[in-house]
């Protein structure tokens, strides 16, 4: 099977709707097919990655810890759009620190998140074979 470039585009805040969780599940399932996977977080999608989420009082499952497992699934290209963060008064420090371990580099921990401008992300998006939007 030829390897294709897949990009999952996340645009929705978590908990208010099911999109964020559904996207994450599709990514995990899709990761089994050894494709070239990347994730983009734009608009309210950047809220999916905030650290310190605690859903105890709203009675929903807190799925934010699962983003930290993406590195294990070889999903290590996570693009976060700069403009979307800024509009929301957020910086990278407000987001979880996502890393992956490079097997070819003695399991060195490397950053998964790449902060990019809208224009840069548009270029990356244009290189994809398939974009799935959530």
């Amino acid at each position: 099977m030829a390897v294709k470039k897949f990009m999952y585009v996340n645009r929705k805040a978590p908990y208010g709707s099911i999109y964020a969780l559904e996207s994450l599940e599709v990514v995990l399932i899709g990761a089994a097919f050894d494709q070239d996977v990347s994730l983009a977080f734009i608009g309210d999608g950047v809220y999916e990655l905030t650290k310190g989420q605690n859903t105890e009082a709203i009675g929903q499952k807190n799925f934010s810890p699962t983003y930290s497992a993406l590195g294990d699934y070889d999903v290590n290209k996570i693009y976060v759009e700069k403009e979307s963060l800024e509009e929301r008064g957020l910086t990278l420090d407000d987001l979880q620190h996502l890393v992956w371990e490079d097997e070819d580099d003695d399991w060195a921990e490397k950053d998964s998140i790449r902060l990019v401008s809208r224009a840069e992300l548009a270029d990356v998006m244009a290189e994809q074979d398939i974009c799935l939007s959530f």
């Binding site: 995990l28 990761a31 089994a32 499952k61 807190n62 799925f63 810890p65 699962t66 930290s68 497992a69 294990d72 699934y73």
Partner: peptide
């Protein structure tokens, strides 16, 4: 991580 890992993982 709140998930059961895939076999590969």
């Amino acid at each position: 991580y709140q998930i059961a890992p895939a076999v590969r993982v």
